[in-house]
């Protein structure tokens, strides 16, 4: 420990050491947890050590991570979104139904789905602003509305519970190339959402830490009255964050649609909690104003490693959620402990 104490004004305040500064970063608990999980499965599951499986693990993580990073930003901005899980399904269904029902180019359906997803986000933000209700309640409402609409509209359009086949329609090939293609690096298969996930993680982390919008997000979640008093457009910031989760839902929804060629209308329920868990493991506070985008991605990676590690280790996969629950509590405690340690140094 090297602590310099060069403070003329107040000798109680010492300059923080480098290690304490590192431990004070929000993502550090997730990184430690991620290493622990990796070491655990590397030692118990031989298949986990195979290089070829890296792509599979990253893919599993990316389908959580793409949403988790947007959810993390929203949580740093002080709000929740419980509708994210079904919003992914809604977006996929919207694109498929629109293209099939009106016989449009697939790309037009994709574009309509984007507008729809952003509009759902904007609506959540607007409703929050107009009613003054907690976002937990507002988005719980949106969650049920979307869940019902997914089932009902699918039944009206197709007469069944899943979207119709649109693989022979115009634009399918190119859209599939954009949303669900894959390539190989050595023996590792990279499915395209992994690329989007990593790119968006870097982009959103930059936005949070290095732009004024990041400053606004932190302030909005930390103390919205203080933020408003110095002229930060609080409601606009929050609405933009909700639209961000809408964008994430669209991207993931498009991937699901073009990867599996159809969307089940009942999918997605419960996923919203996985995203929130990833964000919390990554160091986001439930009260807002603090957290990390990179941390949320590491949280998603922990989920991906656990999901596949359990099956690679030939454990009973039924225990996955139990394991996740333990991880959540554990990670939160580690975060809290590390933060206190870092603050007290």
């Amino acid at each position: 420990m090297t602590t310099a104490s060069a403070t003329p004004g107040d000798d109680r305040v010492k300059t923080k050491s480098t290690s304490a500064t590192f431990l004070g970063m929000p993502a550090v608990g997730a990184v430690i947890g991620g290493l622990a999980v990796a070491v655990l499965f590397l030692s118990v599951a031989p298949a986990f050590r195979s290089v070829g499986n890296i792509g599979t693990i990253l893919y599993g993580s990316s389908t959580i991570g793409i949403m988790a990073i947007f959810v993390a930003l929203l949580m740093i901005g002080g709000e929740f979104d419980l509708s994210t899980g079904v919003a992914v399904t809604s977006s996929g269904l919207c694109a498929a139904h629109m293209a099939w029902y009106f016989n449009l180019n697939v790309w037009t359906g994709v574009l309509i789905a984007l507008i729809f997803s952003l509009a759902v986000g904007a609506f959540n933000g607007w409703l929050l602003h107009r009613t003054g209700l907690p976002s937990f309640l507002v988005t719980l409402g949106t969650f049920f509305v979307l869940q019902g609409a997914n089932l009902a509209v699918t039944r009206i359009v197709t007469g069944g519970v899943s979207s119709n086949d649109i693989t022979d329609m115009q634009g399918w090939k190119s859209a599939q190339a954009v949303f669900a293609s894959s390539f190989k690096i050595g023996s590792v298969t990279i499915i395209i959402p992994i690329v989007y996930w990593i790119f968006l993680t870097l982009l959103l982390s930059f936005v949070l830490l290095r732009t004024k919008y990041g400053n606004w997000i932190l302030a909005t979640g930390g103390d919205d009255k203080a933020a408003r008093a110095v002229g930060v457009p609080v409601m606009m910031t929050k609405t933009a964050l909700f639209m961000g989760t809408g964008f994430g839902a669209w991207l993931l929804g498009m991937h699901n649609l073009f990867e599996y060629n159809n969307v089940q209308s009942g999918q997605g329920v419960g996923q919203e909690f996985i995203y929130i868990i990833a964000a919390v493991i990554g160091g986001c506070l439930l009260t807002g104003g603090y957290g990390s985008v990179v941390g949320a991605s590491v949280g998603a990676l922990i989920y991906g490693m656990t999901l596949l590690g359990i099956s690679y280790a030939k454990w009973d996969v039924d225990w996955l959620k139990t394991f996740l629950g333990v991880m959540l509590i554990g990670a939160t405690l580690v975060n809290q402990y590390v933060k206190r340690k870092a603050d007290s140094r």
Partner: peptide, 11 residues
Amino acid sequence: LALAPLMSVWR
């Protein structure tokens, strides 16, 4: 309501 407590001094 002057400052956001979890944000750094310069922010």
